[in-house]
Amino acid sequence: MMKKKMKNKVWMFGGILSICLMGSLTGCIESTNQQISVKDLAKELKTEINYQDELSKLDKDVAIEMYQLDGIEVEDCIVYVSTGATAEEIAVISAKNGTDASKIEEAFEKRVEEQKNSFKDYVPEELKKLDEAVIEEEGNIVVLSISDEDEKAEALIKNAAK
């Protein structure tokens, strides 16, 4: 009878251990699927990429107006713009849902086209940056990066999405 109790305890311990291990593995899976931090990604794009111009942070309301995002549910938003001497720009915006994220992506595409029209006669050298502008949608986060380092910006965004 003592052996039977001991055997039951071993099985119970094994079952509890299995449940704990499965729980910890689930935690690992969830951690690789974390939401991108708008603040961290914007900061990384601003500090890791070399810009010719000084970038200034815009107020959320000003950014929403600039990108014409009225009626879109923006959860978080960090936008840096140049002085106007260059087309350099960073925008990282979190939408409430996928539909709004797609609308933000369209707004970024429209912004790039408007900037191309503005810079073609003003500073035509900036057209290369605009032609290679990075616009990425990762879940409900949409990113716009206009710089001379589009490949580096893409790598930073992909790394943040891991």
Rank of each mutant, 00 (worst) to 15 (best):
D59K: 10
E136R: 12
E132C: 11
I135K: 07
A87V: 09
E126N: 02
A63V: 12
T99A: 09
D121C: 03
D150Y: 08
E114N: 13
Q115N: 04
A153L: 08
N140W: 04
D59W: 02
I90T: 12
V74M: 05
D53V: 01
S94T: 11
I90G: 12
V112L: 08
Y122L: 10
I72M: 14
I141E: 08
A153D: 12
S94F: 01
T86N: 11
A85T: 08
R111H: 14
E88Q: 15
S82V: 04
V74C: 08
I90S: 11
A133Q: 10
E106D: 10
T99I: 11
D61Y: 01
M66A: 09
D121V: 06
V62Y: 00
S94H: 07
K120L: 07
E132M: 12
A133E: 11
E137K: 15
N50R: 10
A63Q: 07
Y67A: 05
E88F: 07
Y67G: 03
A107H: 03
F119R: 00
S147P: 11
I146K: 07
D148A: 13
P124Q: 01
K57Y: 01
A85K: 08
E125K: 07
D61F: 00
E151H: 06
S145P: 13
A153F: 05
G139P: 05
M66Y: 01
E132K: 12
Q52H: 14
A101P: 14
K128P: 04
V79Y: 00
D150C: 11
L127V: 02
T86K: 06
E154S: 15
G84H: 05
E126T: 02
S82A: 10
D150L: 03
E65D: 15
D53I: 02
E136I: 14
L55G: 12
T86I: 09
E149I: 11
V74L: 06
G139A: 02
Q68C: 03
S147G: 08
E54V: 14
D59I: 09
Q115I: 00
E137G: 13
E109T: 08
A87R: 04
A101Y: 03
R111Y: 12
I93L: 11
I93S: 09
V143G: 10
I104F: 01
A95R: 02
P124H: 00
V74F: 01
V62M: 05
E137D: 03
S118K: 13
D59T: 11
K103Q: 15
V143M: 07
E151Y: 07
L130A: 02
N117F: 13
A101I: 08
G98L: 10
E65P: 10
V134L: 05
D150M: 09
E113I: 03
G71A: 13
